[in-house]
Amino acid sequence: MNCTDFLAKLTDYFDGQIDPELLIEVKEHLGSCHHCEVVVDTTRKTIDIYRGHQPYEFPEELSERLRTAVMNRCKASVSK
């Protein structure tokens, strides 16, 4: 397995959807290739950072305002 083959399997590897035999090859490559090891580590960190820091706030005030507006529209459409 070379780096290109490895990259092609990266998504399946992250999602844990990889054949056991292929997984052995993937791990072998990771053990011998520092570049791919770094790519795996930093890609995982990329995902974790986005998961851990929702960049967009959704305060209760907004939630209530949107919900009220939606429900008013829904109710108005029914009573027509």
Partner: peptide, 21 residues
Amino acid sequence: TSAFEQLVRQYERQIFRTAQH
């Protein structure tokens, strides 16, 4: 409509964030 309001409550955050992204 209260059942629908419950669904709005459950998913408005996810829908908002998806739209904002």
